[in-house]
Design a binder for these strands. Structure first.
Lengths: 187, 187
DNA sequence: CCTCATCTATCTACCACTTGGTAGACAGTT
DNA sequence: AACTGTCTACCAAGTGGTAGATAGATGAGG
């Protein structure tokens, strides 16, 4: 059964793209990582654009599932918001990588259309989860909830990026702590 | 005198890298933009790493000069802070580009060592200017000034990135406005 | 139970194109 | 005569992608 192979490709491609971006992805290295030949990748994903879109789609789907799970497990919305940054922290822990979609946001102009769409979806599901959770926590003026949600998402993304550029997770932690001190983020 | 050529190369390379990153830079397209042949680029910059480092260095030097000029022209430190985001806004206006060093921060793992150094310098001069200006404006608890400065820099970078991914400057403006409403940024 | 066709997933062997980089000729200036 | 800056003409390595062979599994009909 080679459904496992397809999964292995998606997983390895996600990891590679979090370190090198869409442009930095290449079939030979990816195939070697999975343990097959480059030509075989084209059986599962006809073109690089197909692969990129599939990886980005899976990425936001996984994120959506994880956020929903957090919301179910943690009854207090404010607790969810406190934990939110740890999702981004994990990428840094995992070999100083960053969010797939932050990298792809930078590469925006060079992405195939199908990939751009999935990148947008990632931002959307984050913002909508943050909006919902901010509202549940009653932490924001209702008219500005979504605006605030977007701001949190952007600020955390920026923190992750800056931390990567120093290859230092402590930078990320300090930034999050600063967001909290200013009351911008609950904590 | 071909000192002009060197300047033209640096300028074209900066623009290209703000749209496509270090990895997306290539000698042939760059040479065509400048109006010379690819081989001639190697006369001015022996290797791509040399070019990348020179571009990033010039980038933070220009930024440092502009920030100092702003500080001289605007007597009120709080006014400087209010104007700070417009520097990042300009990249977006200029063909939906982003800060060279944000792009390169994403590409961190694939950058030559010399380029990484210059990218760090850019962040450093921004943070130190922000620290100085925050202190002068008396807006922050002194012990936390630099921490707050870093947070502003990261948040603005994130806003620029998210705006690019939507190719929409209004997104940037709204994010900055949100940072102001939360009191995170003076406005 | 055997056989034959089909399907699945992989392989080897290419290909055209792009990449950063080099060698050496050349013309204009000093 | 030497230096400066550009050129043409290469090159080796790497890119995404294709063609076609091949081996193993699957399933239907005799």
């Amino acid at each position: 059964m080679s459904m496992d192979t397809k999964e292995a490709i998606l997983s390895a491609a996600r990891t590679a793209a979090q370190a090198h971006g869409y442009g930095g992805l290449n079939f030979r290295d990816l195939a070697a990582e999975v343990g097959i030949k480059a030509a075989s990748l084209h059986y599962h994903f006809p073109s690089k654009a197909d692969l990129g879109a599939a990886v980005a789609k899976r990425y936001w789907q996984d994120a959506a599932a994880e956020l929903e799970a957090m919301r179910s497990e943690l009854p207090d919305a404010a607790d969810c918001l406190r934990r939110y940054p740890t999702i981004f922290r994990r990428s840094l822990e995992n070999g100083n990588r960053i969010c797939l979609c932050s990298f792809m946001a930078a590469e925006h102009d060079d992405l195939p259309e199908a990939v751009k769409k999935e990148v947008e979806n990632f931002a959307d599901i984050n913002v909508s989860w943050l909006s919902k959770t901010l509202a549940a926590a009653g932490l924001t003026d209702l008219a500005k909830t979504e605006k605030h949600a977007r701001a949190i998402f952007a600020a955390i993304s920026g923190a992750q990026l800056l931390a990567r550029s120093r290859a230092d997770i402590a930078v990320f932690d300090e930034l999050v702590s600063s967001y909290r001190e200013t009351g911008f983020l609950p904590g």
